[in-house]
Design a binder for these strands. Structure first.
Lengths: 224, 224
DNA sequence: GGACAATAAGGACGTTCGTACGTATTGTCC
DNA sequence: GGACAATACGTACGAACGTCCTTATTGTCC
């Protein structure tokens, strides 16, 4: 899969260090994702998590040595889910004419489906830690960079196969697409469905125009 | 000024109710904005605010009856500042050929200047409360709606004066512009200056295209 | 089967949270 | 100038925070 950070999933980080695989950690993280999605990684508390799961608070500090470790593990687990629900799905579906279009489609569906109750986990945490230096912010930036690279690679593929015009600036396009996502995520969660649909449409229009004007897509060649 | 919510500033809300005008409240809110900009309105605590300002904690609870009241007052104060630093400045500068262009220019400068250390206060709080129902979220939505309307009105003006093509969907354009802002805000705060510049450029390109293709701008008429 | 480490629970720690209460002091209006 | 309300401080409260410690129990490897 073209989303490198998924191998940094908590299963990799933690379970590689211990002999006995931990389903408990997975259970904890599943709940942690649920909470952090709406309350933020900072709103995630060990005490609440313990009572929610009927666990002792002390045990949680053993599973995750510090709160920051828990937060990063939660972020990683959520992004592993992201890789499944967006990148892998787009790869399977192949609904769109271009790979980047499929990725964007999958992203909008992932938000509409409310895979996470608080919308896109990446945009949520990116906003939460945008101005708070530290390990979590660094990690968020890595995930963000991975998603940007994922889109850029897909665009590059389209250019190689001739479905996307070669002249365009890939980085510009990535910024535009991720901006529509940032706007759409906010709109969806604030209950502005119209704005969400408009952002999704703007994405499709933007990508279609790239193909029509100057590119030599397979479908156009066939029609001649 | 074309930004209706500025009259809901804390001066209006609080000082209208009391005989003695409170400069102390203004001092408190100035610091509260500073803190909440990076830590979030939820990260704002009365205890920290009191020690920062050399005040008693008890007194703060008199100035603002509850924490939520303090949070909303802080949001309103920040948005009053937003009205000054973006809307009013754009009105004075008249740098761009269209009013909406001036507003967007002013917005990008406002983020680049770091009027608030945590970037645009509106996008920050909108993201923070996107999934937390309550009075604060309702307030955020009002401010967001005001900003959207402000942009929409400016676009409408451009259409009336012939500087912006009449055929375009105003709501679509507003979504695109605010999306670029959401993306740019995130990029700027995460240290991705290139992405910030690209979003600013995308905004200008988008607006220029609207004028060139089909509109009959004054400058074009003069050249004939 | 003995050694060892992960799993699990529970309690105590010092701190900070938001709120409430009591008591002065200050400023303004009649 | 007396009444009243806003201003200001200090203390105390219960709850929740993250962390640390001790104590069993369970599972796995040599």
């Amino acid at each position: 899969m073209d989303f490198e950070l998924s191998r940094f999933s908590p299963q990799y980080i933690y379970d590689g260090r211990f002999r006995r695989g931990s389903k408990t950690r997975a259970v904890v993280l599943a709940r942690a994702i649920e909470v952090a999605s709406t309350e933020g990684l900072e709103g995630l508390t060990i005490g609440r998590l313990a009572t929610d799961l009927g666990m002792s608070k002390g045990h949680l500090t053993v599973l995750f040595p510090s709160k920051e470790a828990l937060q990063i593990a939660t972020l990683d687990a959520a992004m592993a889910r992201f890789a499944d629900e967006v990148v892998a799905r787009a790869e399977r579906a192949r609904s769109s004419r271009t790979r980047v279009g499929g990725l964007c489609d999958a992203w909008f569906r992932y938000v509409a489906r409310r895979v996470f109750p608080g919308g896109c986990f990446l945009y949520a945490t990116a906003n939460e830690y945008r101005a708070r230096p530290g390990a979590i912010r660094d990690r968020v930036r890595e995930h963000r960079a991975a998603w940007n690279r994922c889109l850029a690679n897909a665009i590059g593929d389209g250019q190689r196969t001739g479905r996307i015009r070669r002249g365009i600036d890939v980085a510009d396009l990535v910024v535009e697409l991720t901006s529509y996502q940032a706007g759409a995520n906010l709109a969806a969660l604030l209950g502005d469905r119209a704005a969400f649909r408009r952002a999704a449409r703007a994405t499709r229009v933007r990508l279609r125009r790239l193909a029509d004007a100057g590119a030599t897509p397979a479908i156009a060649l066939r029609r001649r």
